[in-house]
Design a protein around this nucleic acid. Sequence first.
DNA 1: TCATGTCAAGTCTGC
DNA 2: GCAGACTTGACATGA
Length: 295
Amino acid sequence: MDLTTHATGYACINLTLQANKVTTNRGMIKKTFSEKGIAYASELALKNVQDLLKIVDWNLENGFGLFRISSDIFPWASEYRLVDLPDFPDIWATLKKIGSRPIRLTIHPGPFNQLAGQGKTLDNTIKDLETHSELFDLMGLKPSHWNKINIHVGGTYGDKAATLTRFAQNFNLLSDNLRARLTVENDDRLSLYTVTDLVSLYERTGIPIVFDYFHHHLNPGYQTEKEAFMTAYNTWDVRPVFHYSDSRQLHEDPQARREAHADWLYSTVNTYGKEVDIIFECKMKELAVQKLIHQ
DNA sequence: TCATGTCAAGTCTGC
DNA sequence: GCAGACTTGACATGA
């Protein structure tokens, strides 16, 4: 490992603890939510949050200074306010404990968020993103890119430039705390957004760019890895969080889609002499990171 | 307990 | 035209 990389982390699931039923992904299908409602959502959310505390503490005991929280902690969060959950006092108390731990927490809302969207799509996006920001508020986390809420720009609607302009306009509809936390990530598909594409958004909004190494290799635009890394690095006002994964097609299964992540990690990460925190995205989660570091 | 079919949201890709 | 994928499989049902 490049020792200038400051903290390492992984996304959403801890396989070691999951084997003991410790998970933050309890949820339910629509039918169950319509039958059992917010009371059951609250029950699951409390369990999810309590297990998040266990995962965070496991991370600290095992040298992980960074962790991506799952977006599935609050089932059907679009349908209620967090403060209305019957177990809210217990949930909040647990969240405050989590927020007080010396670990860098981030989150990555799903692909349904289309900040450049319109109408109901945009309304739903704002609600979802604000709920993520509220989660960090409840943890007592100061609004900044240190605890990033990272999304992709989303679709292009057939016109990247016009879509980025709309994204920048809609960014102004968000709360101060959310705007202080939001970051954007480069995409893996050729039709979507490269680091260079995102620079124009940064120049208009100040939104930092999360550099995803693997996505860059699949969709480099005209920049080398080092150029794209530095371009993204220079958009940050705190130590950046970048994403790393290896190719499944290259390392594990020639038949795999080119965008598929490998289960494990195979390469060291070049951080070009800069201090960067890395989230490793791989199916084998913390086990893959431990294996990489100890090899 | 276990196998299996099913599952909110938006957009794009590949079959 | 539709399933699959996306940062992460988990839930519900019936045997």
